[in-house]
Design a protein around this nucleic acid. Structure first.
Lengths: 355, 355
DNA sequence: TTATTATGGGTAAACGCTTACAATTATGCT
DNA sequence: AGCATAATTGTAAGCGTTTACCCATAATAA
């Protein structure tokens, strides 16, 4: 937009009438069509009129009404984002990535929280489609066939972030991180440190979310490197501190032989697990090593600091937004694909090498 | 909204035409005015027609177009929110509070990040007013006279969250927490534990943000309880771990007599400061006590766990949204007031009593 | 019965923009 | 110069709602 000093009139609140394209047209002594044209630079307008119009726009500080524009163009430059919990740093960072590219590309973002509840997810989907969004970024808990069916009903592109469809098909474009591979890499890393007995505190038992993928990766790693997985080495939790603590207790109490390393599927669970180990008088990492998941702010500041796998949520948000916006703007619906964001093992004090 | 099983036609994407009020009117064999009336329950419509219309709405799964509606009513049920950084848990939680009441009251929220940059704040203000929002929640870095002037220019209510105006007037409604009092209370709490030498690591030197208010509260407390404040007891930082670490170093190196307690103006700085103290071989809390600020997720999981003051950001967000929406809906502009959210001292392991 | 008033429902005019089409003017070519 | 054609600009028809205004009908009162 051009730089200009418009006349700043101070009106008492509420008494101001928005300046419309008509006012600008009058001021510039042209038709409203011409004003519209210079704004959208569609057809050529003679330089002379272009100048007059731009001057008028500046002088009157004219801003086109997005509602009127959207009503006719059927485009709003707005995208909807559904996340479970914006206060969860993971989604905070993801959202930040999304915001950053949307802001750069002139898109407005509407953020909705689903609290991870299926019912709310559905009602938000409804609500957002009323809002006339141009596209949707969806970070759901369990993206099953029914949900995808519904999302495909809308007339705007939908992109899944963070999670893939849980039923083994790809009907929607997806940007995610490879939970399976990340867990595998954690196992591999621990193996490279000489660990042979590795236990896991995974996500909720019957869900199709990240926890399960991570568990799969763990199992694949254990198999690959020829390690035993006693029953007691697999625990489930809800990603909370408490779940980590009690998960570790059960491992401690029920293992015939204590593992030398624990993989927790969230940093918070790792911290909880470490706490239990400490309470039992184990020294970390000498007697037992710990790894978390996500590389949240927490992990840097525990004692010992927590080894983990960094998921680049910011970049994930960025890529998701970019991909969606591309989809919106050139509208071609190619074969839906899953794009993975690379992750990285972060080595900190909580992992020691064993002989 | 009524519950009903509408006929779910599956259309290939893009080929679907939204159903309009006109379609509904035809289906119900009434005029579009009547349809509009039953939706907005303005004038009474006979029960018979009401029924017919509702049936038609359900059957066709009609959703009124918010753009068209907004264009004519000049209300969008949308509010704008400006925060510096959504990935900062403080703002994450604040936003969650805002979202929760907005969702309940049927408002859509548009979130914008300013990165704490003045320039971006201004351009967001512009952009949001284009978006035809009904109200604005603003969490700015330094809310000075000029900024407030600009915000008053808009024709929708604006409410400040988190911060008061920095020039000692109240021209805008505000929901905030009492940083000054909270810091004072920290001092009081430490005094009650027998501490007599208390240092502070405050916010950036020349700013008008929370850090400064907290410093004021600290100074007031120190005076109230008759304690000396040597020059070296006041340090500034940018709320980061690093700033805490180096702030503590300077206190350690430059104090004639080491303080027995440190108040850091963020949990993260407190953690950094604790780290330095540990590195110098001091035991926490026996030799030196620490307090943070905010009660972020971090504070619970450090060793020792961090005493701090809990700011109820979620409730702050809730109250802010509620207040703003009230302002929007009954439009009366009473005298702008500042509402404070109560805070609470959280005692954890990082503070010991001295004899 | 007829005049008077409620009351429900339809018509059409906004709201502020984009854009197809028509009208006008300028340009290029014999 | 005279015509075809291209480049500009204006006119007006929507986009999908809400709502002021008017008309028809039913209800009430005299």
């Amino acid at each position: 937009m051009l730089q200009c000093a418009h006349e700043e009139k101070v009106f008492p609140r509420g008494e101001r009438m928005a300046v419309t394209i008509e006012d600008v047209a009058r001021e510039a002594r042209v038709s409203i069509a011409t004003v519209s044209r210079v704004m959208n630079s569609s057809k050529t307008v003679s330089p002379k009129l272009q100048q007059r119009v731009n001057d008028a726009i500046c002088k009157m500080n004219f801003r086109p009404n997005v509602l009127a524009r959207g009503l006719i163009t059927k485009r709003t430059s707005t995208i909807g984002v559904v996340v479970s919990d914006i206060a969860n740093p993971v989604f905070g960072v993801l959202t930040k990535g999304i915001n950053s590219v949307c802001q750069a590309k002139g898109y407005t973002v509407i953020i909705c929280e689903s609290d991870g509840k299926r019912k709310k997810e559905l009602s938000l989907l409804e609500k957002l489609s009323e809002q006339k969004i141009d596209g949707l970024l969806f970070a759901g808990v369990d993206v099953d066939r029914d949900l995808v069916d519904r999302m495909l009903l809308h007339d705007y592109p939908v992109l899944l972030v963070t999670q893939e469809e849980s039923y083994g098909e790809t009907r929607l474009n997806t940007v995610a991180h490879d939970n399976r591979q990340a867990a595998f890499d954690e196992v591999e890393f621990l193996v490279s440190c000489g660990h042979k007995r590795i236990a896991i505190i995974s996500g909720p038992e019957n869900d199709y979310s990240s926890g399960t993928r991570r568990l799969e990766g763990y199992l694949a790693g254990m198999e690959q490197f020829g390690m035993e997985v006693p029953h007691a080495y697999i625990r489930h939790g809800d990603f909370s501190f408490k779940a980590g603590y009690s998960g570790m207790r059960r491992i401690y109490e029920e293992s015939a032989q204590l593992p030398t390393a624990i993989i927790a599927c969230s940093d918070l669970m790792a911290i909880g697990a470490m706490q239990y180990a400490r309470d039992m008088g184990l020294t970390i990492p000498e007697q037992i090593s710990f790894m978390g998941f996500d590389d949240s702010a927490l992990s840097r500041y525990t004692t010992p600091s927590l080894s983990t796998v960094r998921i680049a949520y910011f970049e994930e948000g960025e890529l998701a937004a970019k991909t969606l916006i591309n989809g919106i703007e050139d509208g071609l619906c190619d074969q839906p694909t899953v794009r993975y964001i690379p992750h990285m093992i972060i080595r900190r004090g909580s992992v020691a090498c064993v002989e």
